[in-house]
Design a protein around this nucleic acid. Structure first.
Length: 597
RNA sequence: GGUCGCGUAGCUCAACUGGAUAGAGCACCUGACUACGAAUCAGGAGGUUUGGGGUUCGACUCCCUACGCGACCA
């Protein structure tokens, strides 16, 4: 299609020359797709030329259209509406476009001139609780953006930075020590991450009671929060951990191990993966080195109490603490270390951080600090900032127990898909195992699509009912379209229809056929755009559009009843190509598509 | 208090660098399964794009302002 557009632009440029004597290079001409309600496929907006040409917009459109129809064989007709010149393209041209598209596999890389060596950091859980709905948006986004960047030919490494140390980890450890009676996940009959989460919650519960007690005893609220025995004990434990206390470290290793097992099970269930794991316990010391480096270079400064700061007022930010007075690290300390480590490992020219937008300020600071340090990789850092997920009842809040658990949610969507599939009686001929796989594919397809179709930057609302919906603008709608196409291909093979080659001699195409060819051709552009703005929503919308276009084609145009052998083969080929593109585009979202459903 | 972001149909979301009559889905109404899969398709109804100014041939998009919501920084 790029070729076709080039042809049209060149012709328009020539028309400008011949009709108006104006020198307008082809690159300066922007064509846009013609709106559905008008005849034609490409539109030139003529308003911008009224001044230089000294003519009215319609006059320009008429003259250019007239010239094209007589001089450019690819253009078979035109119409002018106000300042819009709509061009109709010859059927042969569309057949040619389709033939070219078929020569490459649907998942062939799309060169965009973008970054080549990329790291995408996502998921990055705390090791004191199971994953929840917010993590799911993060995980799906991270996985998908990585796949999209791969589709532009980049080498992409997915990494997970595990937040495995700090006061919150000690809280769950302490809760376990006090209330856990050394129970194991097996004994409790729980996944490891859920078990640890239970003790984190228990810690918080008892800690709050202590705070309340202190307050009723007349202690000021903020003092009570700091002085409650359980908080003091947690801080003791953190110090013991940093000092390498054997008992504490062993407990820490054991409990984190359980959490990793639990998280890994969730990752496997939702189909995301990582090339490398980083642990904050392994990077915070490196971060302290960066702070030292900044002091030596004179870009950081020390206050009287010994704490280390950076002044970012010139960058429009504020002063920022980098290291506490007692020498312990803060979040940004370890982030400095991790950034350095990632660069050593991958020498990236793009490093994506998939992190919620509540950390916009923090990420600005990180980038600014690395620039101050003169790090060559500072500019390559990109914060893929996504909005929080709200519930119909409002924000998710741990305190109020409104957090939607990832594992529970996954089993719910799978169950919903199962129920719907059974109700429709579509399990015929499937083994039990195949059926289970299908439910999982559909349930997860619904959930992933639901979370990915929204612009990542925007805050979104999670409606449980809509997230398991299988109709309308949903993942299963697209999966269904693919299953339908697969059915057509199976039948075509049974009937020995040869659709490997598409004849040049097709002289007529239905509007829905042209539309479908255009949609297929749009795929590479969608990838480029999605990669540029790092938005899976672009791909999600595209996959929906092409599925929609296919379903329209499917109901309007007969395939097997078509008596003309050439047309019939073309329609099967068109179906096959559409199926490949649907599969590939859904793959970029991390969603699988079934052969039947 | 300071900084940043958001506001589009009853609800959830689209709208490429400023382009035509602002589009989908859900919900509501109507029609289409003895041609290939109805988890589908076609049609109807639904909008002062939060309000008010400005720039432009043209503004959901850019600028100013008011209001509302959210996040972050102390």
């Amino acid at each position: 299609m790029q070729q076709l557009e080039q042809t049209l632009k060149a012709a328009l440029s020539a028309a400008m020359q011949h009709v108006f004597g104006a020198d307008v290079p082809a690159q300066q001409l922007a064509l846009q797709p013609t709106r559905k309600d008008f005849a034609g496929s490409f539109t030139l907006v003529t308003f911008p030329f009224t001044k230089t040409l000294g003519k009215g917009p319609e006059q320009i459109g008429q003259a250019l259209g007239e010239w094209l129809v007589t001089n450019e064989p690819a253009v078979t007709g035109y119409n002018v509406v106000k300042g819009f010149l709509n061009l109709e393209v010859a059927v042969q041209e569309w057949v040619k476009v389709f033939q070219q598209l078929r020569q490459q596999p649907a998942d062939a890389p799309v060169a965009t001139g973008g970054p080549q060596e990329v790291v995408v950091e996502y998921s990055s859980p705390n090791t004191n609780k199971p994953l929840h709905l917010g993590h799911l948006r993060n995980n799906f986004l991270g996985y998908s953006v990585a796949e999209i960047l791969k589709a532009t030919g980049a080498t992409v490494s997915k990494v997970n930075l595990v937040n495995d140390r700090g006061i919150h980890i000690c809280k769950s450890m302490l809760g376990y020590q006090i209330f856990g009676h050394a129970e194991t996940p097996q004994e409790a009959g729980m996944k490891g991450d859920h078990l640890i989460g239970k003790y984190y919650v228990l810690f918080e519960k008892h800690y709050r009671e202590q705070v309340k007690q202190l307050e009723t005893d007349g202690v000021a609220a903020d003092v009570a929060k700091r002085q409650a025995p359980m908080m003091l004990a947690a801080q003791d434990m953190l110090r013991a951990w940093e000092a390498g206390d054997e008992e504490v470290v062993n407990l820490w290793k054991q409990m984190n191990g359980w959490v990793y097992e639990g998280h890994n099970a969730t990752y496997a269930a939702i189909g995301v993966d990582f090339d490398k794991f980083y642990y904050e316990s392994g990077t915070y010391l490196l971060g302290k080195e960066r702070v030292e480096e900044g002091l030596q270079k004179g870009v950081f400064f020390k206050k009287e109490d010994g704490s280390v700061w950076v002044d970012l007022k010139e960058e429009g930010l504020d002063e920022k603490l980098l290291l506490r007075a007692d020498g312990t690290s803060v979040y940004i300390t370890q982030d400095l270390g991790t950034a350095e480590l990632k660069y050593q490992d991958f020498h990236y020219d793009l490093s994506v951080y998939v992190i919620a937008d509540e950390q916009n300020y923090h990420m600005q600071v990180l980038k600014a600090v690395l620039k101050k340090l003169g790090k060559p990789y500072a500019d390559a850092i990109y914060h893929l900032s996504y909005g929080m997920v709200d519930l119909p009842t409002g924000k998710m809040k741990t305190r109020e127990g409104t957090v939607v658990d990832a594992d529970e949610l996954v089993s719910e969507v799978v169950e919903a898909a199962k129920a719907a599939t059974l109700e429709k009686g579509k399990t015929e001929g499937l083994s039990e195992e195949e059926a289970q796989q299908l439910y999982h594919m559909l349930g997860l397809g619904a959930l992933k699509y639901y979370l990915l179709k929204v612009d990542p930057k925007k805050r979104m609302l999670f409606n449980p009912e809509e997230s398991v919906s299988l109709e309308g603008h949903t993942g299963p709608f697209i999966q269904y379209s693919h299953a339908r196409i697969s059915s057509i291909i199976r039948k075509a093979v049974e009937r020995n229809i040869d659709f490997a080659l598409v004849s040049d001699s097709i002289s007529e195409l239905q509007p829905t056929e042209i539309e479908l060819v255009q949609e297929i051709a749009r795929y590479s552009g969608a990838i480029a755009e999605a990669a540029r703005i790092q938005s899976p929503a672009i791909i999600a919308q595209y996959a929906y559009d092409i599925a929609k276009a296919y379903n329209r084609f499917f109901t309007e145009v007969p395939i097997f009843p078509e008596p003309d052998e050439t047309k019939r083969a073309f329609r099967v080929a068109l179906s096959a190509q559409t199926g490949s593109v649907i599969k590939a585009s859904m793959g970029l979202l991390g969603i699988q598509v079934p052969e039947r459903m």
